[in-house]
């Protein structure tokens, strides 16, 4: 596993939107099967896993109130088993792809292996589950069937300390990136749980956060942070330098278009409306990236998934000038 020496960043165009209200209602997380897209929903319009496909067809739901109350995060394994954290009942619920309940593990407490509001989850390279144990201000690692392997972190705002962590991810080198929610930063740990670095602080400027809710890292080492209360996703390169922000460029999803075309009044109202704001993100909760460098944002407040496609050329060391010590104005 190596990273390219540098990138020519051509751009990061908007690619497409999936879902709509009453289908992918209040989406909090997303996962992918071979053909299916699994969207975890939580709120007044549904607490369940919604299954759709790339044609944006509605294929039904999995799970629901009988299995979990406050679903926070979703993982999909290679057999398309679905893992859902339940913050209200301090457990992880496992279903197969058809929604058959397979397993539930976890209990409330603060001892190692116990949980207090588990939220974000990620698989590590071995397929174990790393999760945020939010109210215990720590990160824990479990096997898929709930055997406890590791715990690190404690309450505080110093280096390596956490305050209600939410989303997290494990990169290809095993580093763990945590959205340290109440501390308005992202922290990076080694796989052993040693603090490596921190990104961001409280604010609304570039590189600052208001309650970051999740983090993702792509095959170039680029870091994506859903800056939840600033209604944007920020991109940092592997050196943790700010690159750009995504504020939302949504267009109508396939199902949304079909919906509107069958409603004459809705068509009329849209014809009168101001569209600027319809593209924007509202409380983006989770970011995910796949191996094709597509960025997925669960646009929670707008009941949809916004997808972006990275366009970049990988450069080797000989294809780019060396780093410069000083900035220059002579750039012609």
């Amino acid at each position: 596993m190596t990273l390219p020496f540098e990138l020519l960043r051509s751009g990061y165009p908007y690619y497409m939107t999936l879902g709509q209200r009453r289908v992918t209602s209040n989406p909090v997380d997303i996962g992918f099967g071979k053909e299916n897209v699994y969207v975890l929903t939580r709120g007044g319009l549904g607490n369940e896993v919604r299954v759709i496909n790339w044609e944006d067809e509605n294929l039904g739901t999995r799970g629901g109130a009988s299995l979990f109350q406050w679903p926070a995060a979703l993982l999909v394994d290679e057999d398309e088993n679905l893992y859902v954290t339940d913050e209200a009942n301090h457990k992880v619920v496992v279903m197969d792809k058809d929604g058959e309940h397979i397993n539930t593990w976890g209990e409330k407490g603060s001892e190692p292996g116990q949980l207090n509001r588990p939220s974000g989850m990620s698989f590590d390279a071995e397929g174990n589950i790393v999760l945020s144990d939010a109210m215990n201000s720590r990160i824990q690692r479990f096997t898929r069937d709930g055997k406890h392997l590791q715990a690190f972190g404690e309450f505080g705002d110093g280096e390596g300390e956490l305050n209600m962590p939410w989303g997290l991810t494990v990169d290809q080198f095993g580093d763990i990136f945590v959205a340290d929610w109440k501390n308005d930063r992202v922290q990076r740990f080694t796989s052993e749980g040693e603090f490596k670095s921190a990104i961001g602080s409280h604010g609304t400027e570039k590189g600052e956060f208001r309650r970051p809710s999740s983090v993702a890292v792509d095959g170039h080492g680029d870091i994506y942070v859903s800056d939840w209360q600033n209604d944007r996703v920020q991109l940092f390169n592997r050196d943790e330098r700010y690159i750009q922000s995504f504020h939302g460029n949504a267009s109508l999803s396939r199902s949304g278009k079909q919906y509107i075309l069958s409603n004459l009044v809705t068509l009329r109202l849209r014809a009168e409306g101001d569209f600027e704001k319809t593209q924007r993100l509202n409380a983006p909760m989770m970011v995910k990236v796949d191996d094709q460098f597509r960025l997925f944002i669960t646009d929670f407040g707008n009941h949809r998934i916004q997808i972006y496609q990275k366009d970049a050329v990988e450069l080797s060391e000989t294809e780019i000038a060396p780093k410069m010590r000083n900035p220059i104005l002579f750039t012609t």
């Binding site: 509605n58 069958s262 409603n263 809705t266």
Partner: peptide
């Protein structure tokens, strides 16, 4: 509800 369906439901 509406005469035309909207693909997955009716309004």
């Amino acid at each position: 509800r509406r005469i035309n369906d909207n693909g997955s439901g009716t309004d």
